[in-house]
Amino acid sequence: MRKVIRLLDQFVAGILMLAMTLILLTVVWQVISRYVLADPASVTEELSRFLLIWIGLLGAAFAYRQKVHLGFNLIVEKQPPERRKYILTLVELLVIIFCASTLLFGGAQLVSLTLELEQISAALGVRMGYVYIVLPLSGALIICYGLINIHNLWLADEEEAW
């Protein structure tokens, strides 16, 4: 199981790094093509916006795995360990419910709607469904990471943590 999770982590990190590299190259190319070559690229603006959507949502899942999303932990920190475990589990469950309903289900609705109705992006001409697919993808990943966190809270000591 740990191996599978490690692979998943590497996969997410890989896409995130790739998207960061691409977004930089895209915008640098936009400046060069307009200012140096005087032949402005017509798709860079849209491509970089779509990459940002992917970075933001996929990166959100990555950041959830790293537990770096901003929160307010002053009260929970002061609770006795046993009670804290229950609160932290509740938090994970709330995040999972939100991701399941909104990102996974709502996002999948949006993807199927835009794919079914064949909505095409203005400049690149790609299907908007492919852009939106990062919504359910990120939702599914955060749900996985939430379950892993719950597992780590209850079933594992330090060494067995996933």
Partner: peptide
């Protein structure tokens, strides 16, 4: 990418 994503979410 991670820091960006925190802000983006």
């Amino acid at each position: 990418g991670e820091t960006t994503a925190i802000v983006m979410l």
